[in-house]
């Protein structure tokens, strides 16, 4: 990777039962993906508080990934629906405030989808690289 290229940081909140396990499977299958993602393990995507996402963005994360089980597969019945609802609301607010809400991705990735996890990180890294640094990071730095 050339040094002049912007190197984004992505914070991922992953549910323990599906996406976190999917990331483990990417590991055991030795599927390579960019090291730009940093994972926080939560029991369920339904416990992702929008303030976590905001905090990550304010701290300068260039992207935030929320990963949960496929619809219908949540270990706690409906946590992923709750997450989707909350994140959609958050994105609407951010959009209204003129902020690029596409820095927040919600993806359903199951425990058996290691490849899909790796692909998602690869795509997201590229997408965030294309967007350039999170503007909030700069504001903080001055």
């Amino acid at each position: 990777m050339s040094e002049c290229q912007f190197d984004p940081t992505i914070i991922a909140f992953l549910c323990n039962w599906c996406t976190y396990t999917g990331a483990d499977l990417a590991g055991t299958s030795r599927i390579q993906y960019p090291p730009n993602v940093r994972i926080i393990r939560l029991m369920c995507s339904g416990s992702v508080d929008p303030t976590y996402v905001l905090k990550a963005l304010l701290d300068g994360a260039d992207g935030v990934l929320i990963g949960g089980c496929h619809p219908g597969d949540c270990h706690y019945e409906s946590g992923n629906y709750k997450a989707r609802r909350r994140i959609i609301a958050l994105k609407e607010i951010l959009q209204a405030a003129g902020y690029d809400e596409d820095r927040i991705w919600v993806r359903w990735i199951s425990a058996s989808e290691g490849q899909r996890f790796a692909d998602t990180v690869t795509q997201m890294t590229q997408a965030m690289r294309d967007k350039g640094p999170n503007p909030l990071r700069r504001e903080w730095e001055v």
């Binding site: 940081t9 914070i11 926080i40 939560l42 029991m43 508080d49 976590y52 905090k55 701290d59 994360a61």
Partner: peptide, 18 residues
């Protein structure tokens, strides 16, 4: 709050990661 996954704990992780 959910014990062992409190907002304080998660936010501290975010700070440390960033």
């Amino acid at each position: 709050s959910l014990q062992h996954a409190t907002a304080c704990q998660v936010l501290a992780q975010v700070d440390a990661l960033m």
